[in-house]
Amino acid sequence: MNDIVLGDVTITRVMEYFGSVEMSPATFFPESPDTAWRQHQSWLAPDFLDSETNGCRSALQTWVLRSEGKTILIDTGAGNHKERPYAPVWGHLNTDFLGNLARAGIAPEDVDVVVNTHLHVDHVGWNTRLRDRTWVPTFPNATYLMPRADFDFWNPANGHKTVFGRGNQNVFEDSVAPVHEDGRTVLWENSYRIDGNLTLDLAPGHTPGSSVVTLESGGDRALFVGDLLHTPLQFIEPDINSCFCEDPVQASATRRRLLGWAAEQHALVLPAHLAGHGAAEVAREDGRFVIKEWAPFDRV
């Protein structure tokens, strides 16, 4: 099953990629103790950890929401044919992502809104596609919602020094600027109401403009959290950050705050990169967060 319904919103999981990200836990999550990975290896492997290679496994997936008659995409993965010299795992891909969208009943022209939770290489790639030798918006009728803080931070003209170094090279030029120049972007600040069911709010730390989409419809709640978490180990060890977090202290505080809200509201938490069932509900037990239940999406 790749569709679930929460309140009046249908959520569809559309995959782009699943596999190794060519990083060990110690590299990807430098603050994480090796004992934590060993303690939880029985359930982290094989979906999130390759026990044989000690490599992290990750998914690129787009959450498709159908709400109030509109089709909304949350994050657009890595994209095809992109030049990524300092992020080679995401470079020169040739996936059937658009075919997967089509099998979910969605043509590019059907998309009304694209949400980029932040502007990292693996969240904006399908914003554009190559037509002849020009990058053009993949979703020609969509409004692209981008956090202004990230738009300014990742614009190479502004010369910001980043933890990511050159890992985002070419991304602004081929996946952000073309849709902005086409007049398709809304650069929002602080918060943004998408519709009666969905809101966007800043959740900084991973990047200055990292954001989350909150779904509140009927009695159901969900949080689409982008890169708030890269591994489910961060559900239960929320002070562990990835090596890509621009402000690790703020990232940990944001993670704890949002996981606390999710536990209190019985909200489903949907990160961008979890394989397996892709999402989970969390709870508090003895002052700690625990995974209460995995989402009913099919495992990948």
Rank of each mutant, 00 (worst) to 15 (best):
A222T: 08
S252V: 15
L233R: 04
N241Q: 11
E181L: 15
N170R: 08
V225Y: 01
E237S: 06
V121S: 06
H206P: 01
D239W: 13
N197R: 08
R148L: 12
T134C: 11
S175L: 03
F153R: 04
R129G: 00
D150M: 05
T199K: 12
D152A: 15
N116R: 06
P137A: 10
R166C: 00
N241L: 02
W154T: 11
V186Y: 09
Q250R: 15
A251T: 04
N127D: 02
P238Y: 01
T185E: 09
D174I: 10
L145N: 05
A149N: 09
G183Y: 06
L119M: 13
L130E: 06
P178F: 02
D182W: 01
G165T: 11
L228V: 09
W188R: 07
L258P: 01
L119W: 03
E181V: 08
P140W: 11
G226W: 10
A253Y: 09
V121I: 14
A253S: 14
D247S: 13
V249M: 12
E181G: 12
A142W: 04
P147H: 09
L187D: 07
D239T: 14
N127Q: 04
L187C: 10
G125Y: 08
P140N: 03
F139V: 04
D174W: 00
V249T: 14
F151C: 05
W188N: 09
L228K: 03
T128L: 12
P137N: 01
N116I: 03
S252Y: 06
T128A: 10
R193E: 15
G165D: 12
F139K: 03
R129P: 00
H118E: 09
L202V: 11
E181M: 11
Q250D: 10
T134S: 11
V212D: 08
